[in-house]
Nucleic acid binder design. Sequence first.
DNA 1: TTGATGATTTGGTCTGACCACTTGACCAAC
DNA 2: GTTGGTCAAGTGGTCAGACCAAATCATCAA
Lengths: 249, 249
Amino acid sequence: MTGFAPIRRTSVSAAVFDQIAAQILDGRLAVGAALPPERTLTEEFGVNRQALREALQRLDQLGLVEIRHGGATRVRDYRRSAGLDVLPRLFLGADGAIDPDVVRSVLEMRAAIGADAAALSADRMPAPLVEELQALVADLAEIDGDDVARLSAADIHFWDLIVDGSGNVCYRLSLNALRRAYEPVEPIVDRLMLDERRDVAGHRAMIAAIAAGDAAGARDAAVRLLAQGQAAVMSHFADGPERDTEGRP
Amino acid sequence: MTGFAPIRRTSVSAAVFDQIAAQILDGRLAVGAALPPERTLTEEFGVNRQALREALQRLDQLGLVEIRHGGATRVRDYRRSAGLDVLPRLFLGADGAIDPDVVRSVLEMRAAIGADAAALSADRMPAPLVEELQALVADLAEIDGDDVARLSAADIHFWDLIVDGSGNVCYRLSLNALRRAYEPVEPIVDRLMLDERRDVAGHRAMIAAIAAGDAAGARDAAVRLLAQGQAAVMSHFADGPERDTEGRP
DNA sequence: TTGATGATTTGGTCTGACCACTTGACCAAC
DNA sequence: GTTGGTCAAGTGGTCAGACCAAATCATCAA
């Protein structure tokens, strides 16, 4: 905790990608519109065609544009063609403010998947994972209630075990995507989630139900646990947009 | 309906992408392993470096490899780094058989998200969408029960409206990803889902609850509706792997 | 042991050329 | 008027070879 942050190296093609993606996601580039030819974009950005093409390939991979050999590259409707991977770029609107609707969406999905994963874990989680889970919560009780970093790490570990134990690869991949979506607002969220993460009793209840093979009980416990952070974060973002991503005031 | 299918043109970079992705997803390339240098891969594949790099960029975008300037390109643990976008490539294992675990996972997630989206729609869906939904189900009753294509189209439209009405962008994007996952097994699934899709009463019950603002009722109706296809598909894949992706036997 | 140095390896960018596909205008045959 | 053929222009796809920039590692000095 030195207060330093990793240097952000940004390659040329990544910079091009960012600019085009931003224009598509905030609507400056309309759906169906044709991008200028590659050779023209090359001049506009002042980059090489190879770097430009790498950016376009990534945009295509993400579902933001459609590249057609011989035809124009067109903007797709990301709401119909993109996957969860675009989420991190949806948090911040054109004005740099955090979009509360996106925050709410992420929290709702977190709750839905977390609850179902907990229920499935009650049926399927192998014994070794259950033991690891119990050990983890024993450690959780020892963590200083203000140690944001350790609580965050424990939380990540906890849900990794739950999702792995559910045996559902979709939930596993969704969790990855949702976590990457958090990143832009991580400092705020880590603070707001404190109460949920240090709720030892809530975690214990969930594990007990899972260990007992009680799917309904595990689901209820998960719902209660996840509702805490959801309420805390939503009450924070409901009032108005948020720009601060730094430490406490 | 002439029975013809579009010609599948495949670019060089896409072919390279497919080969590497397949090796990573079925474990032939171990997690953490370093890929050969680009110039070496260039020779192995017999392609140009630009084409190769475009493929690597897409793999990086997907979370399958990590590219580091100056260092080696390494295989990442897709179960921790990838999003739902890899799903279509997970259906088929190395031997070409469909993985029942992946099928089950997709169906479970479909049920979880579908149910929650229905519940949210009961609270949030704007009136025009509700009307469109009612009109859609009226049409559904007119469709020939054996018209697979029209029933499939109606089903897509139906859930598009539900998810749009839920106002949850995560669900919207997840639905896109899940649908793309279906594609490799679409012919089979379309047949197995017939009973669910032509269950007019089930659809009506769900819409009625949504129109009445009854979130719990909408959730229950959605659960019942989605359980039908889930049961049908799982009973088909539970017995053994499936290779046939063509028409009925 | 520690830290600095420099050669080597590897990914990143650039230039310019040519290939392959799509599009649209135009024309010929029916 | 419709159909199909032809051609030129526009656009994405691939190729070749060169050089730049970051990471790595062996080496050596303090």
